[in-house]
Computed example of a mutant assay.
Amino acid sequence: MLIIGIAGTELRAQERDWLQHPACAGAILFARNVASREQVAELTAAIRAAAARPLLLCVDQEGGRVQRLREGHTALPALHGFDALYRRDPQAALALAREHAWLMASEVRAAGFDLSFAPVVDLARGNRAIGNRAFSADPQVVAAFAAAYVAGMHEAGMAATLKHFPGHGSVAEDTHFEAAVDDRPLEALRREDLVPFAAGIAAGADAVMMAHVTYPQVAPEPAGYSPRWIGDILRGELGFRGVVFADDIGMAAATPVGGVAARIAAHLDAGCDVVPVCHPELVPEALQALQGRPANTAALLGLIGRGPLGWDALLADPRHAQARAALVQVPTPGADAAIASGANDAGYLA
């Protein structure tokens, strides 16, 4: 099953055909698709109308530099700002993160989406793609925030997606543009990077997004292509029963296995349920690659929301104004080293 990207602020005839393809599970929008709050609501409605079955509509709306929806939406603080608050008052910081999650998810639903790919539960250890998108460098602190954030998204009626499994924060490389290798043994990863994922899964996270990072002491291929990581560790050891997303197949670190068809097959064969194809120029080849392959549409039904939450209803909810006011307390993290990161590029999945 594929989540596809589209080119602009309106659907083209060819894109309507893509959305009707049996292998298309939904669409993801980026800043290139957003001109205004009203326009994006019209576009999400048009995408739903173009398909003969329910589709999953997705966006990256984390806070900080990764916010595809800006005009008419709250400017959400980056997650790393919560770390300083946690050191002063852990319970207050966790409660505020829950409000961040509720506010983000509520506004994304009001725009007509089902899912924002959040939260990031990687460790803040200097990765160029992650930067201040991560809560903290401390695994136990990130684990506490992961549980709080999942709860806040659920309160807003949105499924939560933990990313990027099994942990993207402890290597320097940005997988949008280069391969990344983490040579630590599995025991070290269990003590550190896997801790927040275990906490998020225990809190009821509905989905996990894989990292395009290779951990050669665990498996020879990047994690999203690895039956060891997906089947044995994520589903077996951690007991995860939700939806597994690959990361974007257009990223540089996804390319070693071959062309578009080879990447999709490798992800699905390894155990991924859904493969994002964010660059529209790759979509025709991706759909062709899945001709005749059985599609597991049931895997995504639990992620599709309860229908759009209208802006009028959201703005009438006192919690909306209260959450916006409360988030002013979150400090702005220091300069982000990942200025040129693909996460800041509206054409890439973050």
Rank of each mutant, 00 (worst) to 15 (best):
A321G: 14
Q91R: 05
H154Q: 11
R65C: 03
G72K: 05
V40H: 03
V195L: 10
A340C: 09
A84R: 07
H21R: 02
G26C: 13
D83K: 05
V34Q: 09
V330I: 04
R109L: 12
G236V: 00
L29V: 06
P294D: 06
C58K: 08
G64I: 05
V34I: 12
D114R: 08
P284N: 07
Q91N: 03
F135R: 12
I6V: 15
G126I: 12
A346L: 09
L186K: 12
F145V: 07
E10V: 12
M210N: 09
Y225H: 04
A95F: 06
G342F: 04
R32V: 02
Q329S: 15
V328T: 15
H80I: 07
G224Q: 11
G64P: 05
C58Q: 11
T74P: 13
D193T: 10
V34K: 11
G152Y: 05
L314N: 11
A207R: 09
A337C: 07
V260P: 00
E192A: 13
R128V: 13
G250K: 08
S226N: 13
A295D: 10
A286E: 02
H21N: 01
E62F: 01
G5F: 09
D247A: 12
F82V: 08
L301Y: 15
R16V: 01
W311H: 08
A45T: 04
G157E: 14
A124S: 14
F135P: 07
Y348D: 11
L29C: 04
A323S: 15
P54K: 08
A289Y: 00
L115A: 11
P119F: 01
V120L: 14
E281G: 10
R12M: 12
L238N: 00
L349H: 02
P276Y: 10
G157T: 15
V181T: 15
A52I: 07
A266E: 01
T332N: 06
V34E: 08
N344F: 09
R68I: 00
W229L: 14
H320Q: 01
S136A: 13
T161L: 14
V275L: 03
